[in-house]
Write a protein that binds this DNA or RNA. Structure first.
Ligand code: FES
Ligand code: FES
Lengths: 138, 138
DNA sequence: TAATGTCCTACCAAAATAGTAGGAATTAAT
DNA sequence: ATTAATTCCTACTATTTTGGTAGGACATTA
């Protein structure tokens, strides 16, 4: 399951997606509207900014906004930044690969199945975007 | 990601699948061959027994064996028993549903996307079985 | 009744999760 | 220049989950 932090990230990003092209939105506004703990949200938004999904402006009239179009931010990207690997096992992760201890990759049937599962999941998560989230509301 | 415990469970089950129809296998044998901590493995096997995937025999000549055919044990079942929910959010879990706090299910676009992702993942995990794991070795 | 095995209860340390606190840095308006 | 508004940074903390271990009770077979 995704962490609450990741769920918060999605809610915040969906909020910002609705404001794409408009003025920046303050953290406090997002926290209030989306009911996310303020200081926790601060951490999340900075992380998203550090990977260039968001941009920020300080001082009066400042806040956060999406750096790129909601159509170009897919769900897999967000999950990887905030939550980590999408694959079910480290040995099948594309972005966070680690060798399984005491298991031989060549002959491992578990691994082969988990590759199939991963590809099936990724097919959805890499195709669906923030834009799909906000249009799905209707 | 799946816990190490779940990965151990799969390794043990794959081992037992290869012995399906034969004599029961001792915990200590599985622990040794699959390199799983013995006492930890005990816990795992008891859990799998409690949901009727395994059967056990005590005393000399005893051990564990699959209670049903490896073709009838799918990966989703194993994951749910040892690891918990497969869905990415509590609000889209079929077997471990919980309401999201501060999020309205009717209008939530995040939820709608995660349902699609869940179905895609389940399509694989519910179709693939222990038998697929052991034949995939070749 | 002794040996062989599973089963049960309880405990433990390390890591991850879900935050909180306090202030520094930057920008904009006065 | 000063002040107010806002993000940004560092660090701390409590709770839960993970990944085990220990010791013996219970059941089965020879
Ligand atoms: S190599 Fe990763 S599970 Fe076997
Ligand atoms: S209802 Fe579960 S994420 Fe919105």
């Amino acid at each position: 399951m995704l962490s609450k932090k990741t769920q918060y990230a999605f809610r915040a990003l969906a909020h910002l997606a609705l404001n794409y092209g408009k003025d920046p939105v303050r953290i406090s506004t997002i926290a209030l509207k989306e009911k996310i703990p303020l200081k926790f949200l601060e951490n999340i938004l900075v992380e998203l900014k550090n990977v260039d999904l968001l941009e920020s402006k300080k001082g009066k009239g400042g806040g956060y906004s999406l750096k790129i179009s909601p159509k170009k931010i897919n769900l897999a990207t967000v999950i990887r930044v905030i939550n980590g690997p999408i694959a079910l096992l480290p040995c099948v992760s594309l972005n966070f690969y680690e060798k399984c201890t005491d298991c031989d990759e060549e002959t491992c049937g578990i691994r082969k199945m988990m590759i199939i599962a991963r590809d099936s999941t990724l097919k959805v998560l890499e195709k669906k975007t923030l834009n799909d989230i906000i249009i799905a509301k209707d």
